[in-house]
Amino acid sequence: MTAHYKNIVVHLPNWLGDTMLALPFLHGLRSVFPDARITAAGRLWVSDILHHFPPLDAVASISSTSGLINYLRGEKFDLGFLLPNSFRTALAFKLGRVPERAGYALDMRGILLTHPLKLTDAIMRESMVEYYMRLLEPFADISEIPRIMKLYPDEADRAEARRVFLENGWDGSSKLVGVNPFAFQWDTKRWLPERFAEVADRLAERYGVRCVFSSVEKDRPLMEKIKGMCRRPIIDLVGKVPLKILPAFMEHLSLFITNDSGLMHVAAAADIPIVAVFGSTDWQRTAPWSQKATLIRRQQDHEPCMKPTCSRDFRCMNDISVDEVFNAAEKYL
């Protein structure tokens, strides 16, 4: 049934966290099509993390819709999987002459898909891991496919990550704990920064760990505020960790304390313990795919609101105490 597909392309999701939640799908795709050439195409800010990912034969960074269409035409793919749900993506695959196209029939694009999947209420209650895995249902029994959440940093990545740590205050032996008070765009994903600072101080004082903060450079203003709140020295790697070495960066950590974010899912793929604070987002869909994760959240009558800003009293985050997060973290140390 699948042997005649020789050249397959996957359009990656547009965000880092969603791309991480699609890792089991990418592993499953390789198991369903063991002899095909498989390429992942996506924006640079998601594709670069897959530069060394054995289930794929190639990774292409695409910067525009016209560039995507031209790329698809040149590569002559025979099957495409569309992980983003936009009409534009489906149209690009059609114009790119990919003869078979699988994706969810959303945004009025069902007519452009040869393997359309209906999005049901039951699917919307599942993890995003299962949501992406269902794209393989027209081709295989997905119940028999392992859900593998894993990245594969190479030795060059590991050496580069170690160099970044050593050049920014690590002594090479102290236990490292990642702390991520950042979250892209959504204020309601962010637990209070002063509470992250207090948790970091308590962990340093009780366990002698070095707490590491990392994000993109645009989060520098918040990082400076948090540094001013911390009593104990921290390792500030904001703007210093390229996307491609994030998996190797995570391997150095003994624990990752975080908001709901893309980095949370990178930590899950690195198989390190996670303490994740959830606010406005749907934890059933976007919780880390990990047996080593503790989720901390507050049930509200309007949960999850799925809004980037709060028009109420922000109880979903305000009611989560420093003690609760610290107690969850120390169980892993």
Rank of each mutant, 00 (worst) to 15 (best):
I226L: 06
K225D: 11
D171I: 00
D201M: 08
P181M: 04
M223L: 10
V212H: 02
I226P: 10
L203N: 00
L166R: 06
L243A: 05
V238W: 08
I226Y: 02
G239L: 12
A248R: 02
W191M: 14
M229N: 05
Q185G: 07
K227F: 06
S214V: 05
E224A: 05
I234A: 14
R195F: 13
D201Y: 06
F213S: 08
A248C: 08
L203C: 04
R232A: 05
N180F: 10
L166A: 12
T188D: 15
I234P: 09
C211A: 11
K240P: 10
A200C: 12
M250F: 11
L176G: 12
V212W: 01
I234S: 15
G228M: 04
A248V: 03
L246W: 00
K218Y: 15
P242M: 01
R163M: 03
V241S: 12
D236C: 04
K227G: 05
R220Y: 07
V179D: 07
I226M: 04
E224D: 10
K225E: 14
E251M: 07
A204Q: 10
D171M: 01
R210H: 13
L237A: 07
E251I: 09
E224C: 01
N180I: 11
G228S: 00
W186Y: 13
T188M: 14
E167L: 07
P242R: 00
K175Q: 11
L192V: 11
R190E: 11
P233H: 05
N168I: 06
S173I: 14
E251V: 03
C230Y: 00
P193D: 09
F196I: 14
G208S: 06
W191I: 15
G239M: 14
Q185F: 14
K227E: 10
F184P: 00
S174V: 02
F213N: 07
G208M: 08
E205G: 04
C230G: 00
S173M: 15
E224Q: 09
R190L: 12
W191A: 15
C211S: 11
G208N: 04
F165C: 04
C211D: 02
N180V: 10
V216K: 09
R231P: 00
E205Q: 13
P193T: 13
N168E: 08
S174N: 08
S214N: 06
T188S: 15
A197E: 03
K244F: 06
F165G: 01
P193S: 08
V212D: 03
P247T: 07
C211F: 07
R231A: 06
